[in-house]
Simulated scan of single mutants.
Amino acid sequence: MATKKITITVPEEIVEAARGLTDNVSGFAAEALAARVRHELLGRDLQQYQEEYGAFTDEERAAADALLCGTSESGELPRAEAA
């Protein structure tokens, strides 16, 4: 993927915290920005879907939460399937 150098202004505390977590602050920031972009785009897609097909039901939300959290709808962790 091609890269582009930009300049951003970040609070000092955030920079210091990032430096404590990684030697590659630029890569760390790029990953955070990419995650935010994915989040915003997904939000737009979900909003567009609901505008076209209607709001998600409580059951649909519970099923999505279960998938995202790795639990069943009863709140239990899924069991490994026997091979």
Rank of each mutant, 00 (worst) to 15 (best):
D23A: 03
L33M: 06
L68F: 13
V15F: 13
L77E: 06
D65I: 02
S72H: 08
C69R: 10
S74M: 15
T57V: 15
L42V: 03
G70L: 12
F28M: 01
R36T: 10
E60R: 15
E16G: 02
H39G: 00
A66K: 08
F28T: 00
L42H: 02
E52Y: 00
E76G: 14
V10M: 10
G20Q: 08
Q50I: 14
L42E: 04
T57K: 01
G70Q: 05
Y49L: 14
R79F: 15
Q50G: 10
G75Y: 15
G27Y: 01
E60N: 00
N24S: 15
S74R: 09
A64F: 04
D58G: 06
E81K: 02
R36E: 06
T71Y: 03
L67P: 11
A17P: 05
A32Q: 08
K4T: 12
V37A: 09
A2C: 09
S72V: 00
V15R: 01
E40G: 13
A2W: 14
E60Y: 05
A83D: 06
Q50W: 06
A83M: 04
Q47D: 07
R79S: 08
G20A: 10
G70M: 07
D23V: 13
A17N: 15
I14F: 04
Q47Y: 05
E81F: 14
R44P: 10
A35S: 13
E73M: 15
R44Y: 07
V25Y: 07
G75R: 03
V37Q: 10
